[in-house]
């Protein structure tokens, strides 16, 4: 029996038999926090019982589909990061061409005032829950264009309601992107109440 659920009140049920997890199944993150019960007396199937938040967060963090969105230089690193050498796919991040299927917006590249409205619209089109990683100096502060440019938005947080992770660099190396994705995954694991506000 794993430690997490053992601290809680043991489950007593007329329908379920509470039994320890079979030894041959390797312990992973999920099993540490969940306990296995046999469905029905006599046991035809196995149900995992635990905190729903943990399970949902675990699913969400491992399938962070990102939008194939790139405006400028960072977009090339996005391509190279998605390709074979760095392979964001290892962390469950695959690109989607449409915002309707994307969970995560990585704002790769400079955003100009002409583009700002479109970025807001792309963000609005993404389904909840959605996450934003501000990639590169341009989307964090305006970067090299901060002082002298008249047409660059000085940071994506001026136009989007929230940014989860900032990854600095001009452009950041793909390793830094991966670090950013990992940080976002850690953030997601801390989400409470399915990410909904309490009623």
């Amino acid at each position: 029996m794993s430690q997490g659920p053992a601290k809680r009140k043991p489950i007593k049920s007329n329908i379920f038999d509470v039994v320890p997890a079979p030894a041959e199944i390797p312990q992973n993150v999920l099993q540490k926090n969940f306990e296995r019960v046999r469905a029905c007396k006599g046991g035809e199937g196995i149900i995992e019982v635990g905190i729903a938040d943990l399970f949902i967060n675990w699913c969400r963090k491992n399938s962070l589909w990102y939008l194939y969105y790139a405006t400028a230089c960072c977009g090339i690193e996005l391509m190279q990061g998605g390709a074979s050498k760095y392979d964001f796919d290892r962390f469950g991040a695959v690109f989607r061409a449409t915002p309707r299927q994307a969970d995560m917006l990585m704002t790769a590249g400079t955003i100009t005032h002409k583009m700002a409205e479109r970025v807001q619209r792309i963000y609005a089109q993404m389904p909840e829950p959605k996450y934003v990683i501000a990639i590169g100096a341009c989307t964090i502060t305006g970067g090299p264009f901060y002082k002298d440019s008249y047409s660059v938005v000085k940071g994506v947080d001026l136009i989007l309601p929230k940014v989860d992770v900032y990854v600095p660099g001009c452009p950041p190396r793909p390793e830094a992107w991966i670090e950013g994705i990992r940080n976002l995954q850690n953030l997601i694991m801390k989400t409470k109440n399915y990410g909904l506000k309490k009623a």
């Binding site: 005032h113 002409k114 700002a116 008249y150 000085k154």
Partner: peptide, 25 residues
């Protein structure tokens, strides 16, 4: 530049605007 942009930026006497569509420049 957007159609509703004011002024022509490469002129020497161009003054940077304060904001565009509510976003600070």
């Amino acid at each position: 530049l957007p159609d509703d942009w004011e002024g022509h930026p490469l002129r020497k006497d161009y003054i940077y605007p304060e904001q565009y569509h509510g976003i600070k420049i």
